[in-house]
Amino acid sequence: MGIFDFYLLETIINGVLFGGVLALLALGLNLVFGVIDVIWIAYAEIVMVGMYIIYYLNVVLGWPLVFAALASILGVGVVGLLVHALIISPLLDTPPINQLLATGGLLFFLQSFATLIFGAEFRNLGLSMPILQFFELYISFSRLLAFGTALVGMIALYLFLTRTYIGTAIRAVAQDREIMSLMGVNTRKVYLITSAVGGGMAGLAAILLVLQQDVHPFIGYTFGPITFMICVMGGLGNLLGGFLAAFIMSQIISIGSFYVSTELAYVIAFILFIAVMFIRPEGLFQRRA
């Protein structure tokens, strides 16, 4: 019995760390979702672009990992900017579902473009990240790193949104976009900056993901859906809510995988999401308006 509880403890700790990865993934999407009210259905594929940037610079061109990582943040930030400028902004006045579908086209495009350039093979950096041992507990270092980065990323984003002028403008636009443009705020600029920052967050998530997973063109399907669910469950644009929702989902998946199987654990997580949508469509942690 003692052994049993022990494995469960390890499962729970790994679940917390996995939650860090999910929380980090959700940050950028949450920002874009909350401010522009657009779902980038290709968000996971944009993260994939970052993973390929790091792979290409580090493995093919032989750049040091740190520079490759910085290039990922910048590069994906530019991708975010382009997504808004080229796809979202011509569609801002159309039904919201059109924006979602257009980024769905982007999903196909990025997936197959990656296949075209890198092929369907699984690629990795060839690094083996250490596994830390605390007494009898084995914990993956890369997950610990992701957890820490998610925490730092969230705090940084929070400070950016509350302590800077442009951050305040972003929050104001999120609250009421029509009034803010009447007040003389250049909403287009605010949207572009938000998209770039959201993209940069995706680039950050890509760094942590590429350290622990192989990258392949269809990797987006593995973590894309769960990322959307987390954002919505936490309440749109609610950074802390998204963070908490990431940990709820990761615990369900982690403990579910432990007791039944990974697939059924995801099934439970998705069904919970559907149920939450029925009961509290504004998200678990959103104050009712």
Binding site: I87, P90, L91, N98, L101, A102, G104, G105, L106, L107, F108, F109, L110, Q111, S112, F113, A114, T115, L116, G119, A120, P217
Partner: peptide, 19 residues
């Protein structure tokens, strides 16, 4: 020879269609 080319063009066309 060019796996993914067809889908790349398809994805691009989808975006253009919706816009």
């Amino acid at each position: 020879t060019l796996t993914g080319m067809a889908e790349t063009i398809y994805g691009l066309l989808l975006i253009l269609f919706i816009i």
